[in-house]
Design a protein around this nucleic acid. Structure first.
Lengths: 349, 349
DNA sequence: CTGTTAGCGCGTTCAG
DNA sequence: CTGAACGCGCTAACAG
């Protein structure tokens, strides 16, 4: 029923081995023979059997990309960049690699499941994006998996995620969330703000912690008390931003600025402030993080920290493919850039 | 080096076949035996070899999800919903399926490449999302691929894409883009608008064409001339919306409404109007399509057509997994819902 | 319920 | 540069 390598070989009047060689392009084959084989492939509409080929070669053309939330452009942009470097020639068997993105939904279990699935498939490489969950047992489980993947020859790259000390073979491209958070809050303090609310992401996430640490460092540097009542945790979505802002306002109506964990959350914060009859930035300044495409369209445009998501993703993809030298020590820090726009201004008097 | 099924069998003192049976859970196995096998699996830290298993079983646990733009939440939301129905038990081999999303970037070649790669992997199912490119040769090539996939036992589902007449085995969940577009423009006409600009998506895309057809149908129903100068094509991103709006304004400064191909484009349109000193909706009304999460945060909130992306995706996922009956005739139309919000109002006098 | 026996389709030695 | 032979690790009959 289904046409196999042998069928192609028969039609091209060569041995199966030769067909395999032209398909993989790893061995010298006479031009005329190659020609004949390729024609046979075309005539028969032959498609290589991936599993068989992976079994024999003990490696596959699959490259996994793990994201926390595929509906969030933050991950979408990185995933697109990574995948763009993975597709195209370079793999075995006709030269196309299959870059696939897996959505963990931020769930530790699903993260491990996907890692196992990818291990089962003997993936050529795996790229993990975004913040990690800090729960110790889970972190250890992930590190163990990464080590095993590495041992099995799978290249592991972390993109926008802190290095995993227990899995040293994983190359890490880390975002400087701490520095970015600090810059942002410094900017607000510089404008004169002293009562700043902070909407943090989910607890137990590295991204959340680092951004918050940056914020606190800035406060500390300017002798501003870090009132715990001015920090609220929530998910990385607009609704969390909306509700957290209402809560912050309830706790302290005299706030003059709200710093959000990311741009999406900031959007929710803006909505809440508007509904409360507060003007941005006249009454309350708002700042986000990431500089996603829609941030510039907010009204007023969002002050935020731009992260080079595309560039970092592309680099991670290239490293995963072995087409770029890993950074020295296997770790590189990618900095953000403060984008000052209309949503922040001097505090009301 | 790497531990195989045989190693597990030896340790559990059973035959390899038995190990396979407990792992796949397809055959009855005595509880005590199963216990012993599972312990051995655990002790040895055994992970099934996917390629080997797929080769022997002539099918894999891979399910492909094709999207046009993974950085666009429109696709992200659908992909997340599809993937959520795919993961989890149900497949062979320990019961986890690997749902993977592939980003075509809207490129016909990459679409075909991914389809071939998925065919090569003997994917269990493939879900294609979003509008199709209408170029005839390409459409034929895709249809041919889909037919071949179907013949090879791969379940093919179209989600948010029109049916492919040449590939009848593909189940289609289609969005009523035409009806939605018509509703939207009817709403504007009902408010009193007569000079409406339309920012269409890329040409040769089914989504673009259907939405535009709906718009035109509404105009025709109210005897409003369809001036071709009032329609501009562009990509599905904010920049295209921004530039197209400037162009529309240049061609006809007396426009009272702008209908955009989708919400992202509408956001760009809003930005352009604001910069031109025009108020929304007092001077110009704006409408989008899709009702993505950020649309409600636009200022003013965007009037748009809500598409049940999550629901449709989940359903597509279930159908792909054989867990839900396909619609009669293999085709179902999913309607949108008009969401009237602040960005549309009566035209200025 | 369990063991035995054959392949699944291809990559890769080794000769020639 | 090309062919022959072997085995990758697992599943699917077939017996028992």
């Amino acid at each position: 029923m289904t046409v196999t390598l042998a069928d192609v070989a028969a039609r091209a009047q060569v041995s199966p081995a030769t067909v395999s060689r032209v398909l993989n392009g790893n061995y010298p084959v006479a031009a005329s023979t190659r020609e004949r084989v390729l024609r046979a492939v075309d005539d028969l509409d032959y498609v290589l059997n991936g599993p068989a080929s992976s079994l024999a070669a003990a490696t596959s053309d699959l490259v996994g990309i793990l994201v926390n939330d595929i509906a969030d452009p933050f991950f979408g942009i990185m995933a697109a960049a990574i995948q763009s470097e993975i597709g195209g020639p370079g793999g075995r068997a006709g030269g196309e690699r299959l870059g696939v993105v897996c959505n963990t939904g931020g769930s530790p279990e699903r993260e491990l499941t996907y890692l196992t699935l990818l291990q089962r498939q003997r993936a050529a490489a795996v790229v993990l994006t975004g913040g990690a969950v800090e729960d110790a047992p889970h972190a250890a489980a992930v590190a163990a998996k990464l080590r095993k993947l590495g041992d099995a020859g799978t290249q592991v790259v972390l993109c926008g995620r802190p290095p995993a000390p227990d899995a040293p073979e994983a190359i890490a491209l880390t975002f400087d969330n701490r520095g970015g958070g600090q810059q942002l809050t410094e900017h607000l303090i510089g404008l004169g703000h002293r009562r700043l609310g902070y909407i943090a992401g989910p607890e137990e996430r590295t991204t959340t912690r680092h951004r918050l640490e940056g914020h606190r460092a800035a406060l500390a540097a300017h002798d501003i008390e870090d009132d715990p009542r001015r920090t609220v945790h929530g998910r990385y979505d607009r609704r969390a931003g909306y509700e957290a802002t209402l809560e912050l306002l309830r706790r302290d109506p005299s706030l003059t600025a709200v710093v959000a964990a990311n741009d999406t959350v900031a959007l929710g914060a803006c909505a809440a402030l508007r509904e409360a009859g507060l003007r941005i930035p006249d009454d309350v300044s708002v700042a986000g993080f990431d500089d996603l495409p829609f941030s510039i369209d907010a009204v007023p445009a969002l002050t935020t920290v731009r992260l080079p998501l595309s560039e970092a993703g592309a680099r991670a993809g290239r490293i995963a493919m072995g087409r770029e030298e890993p950074p020295p020590g296997g770790i590189a820090t990618v900095r953000g850039e403060l984008m000052v726009r209309g949503s922040t201004g001097v505090p009301r008097v």
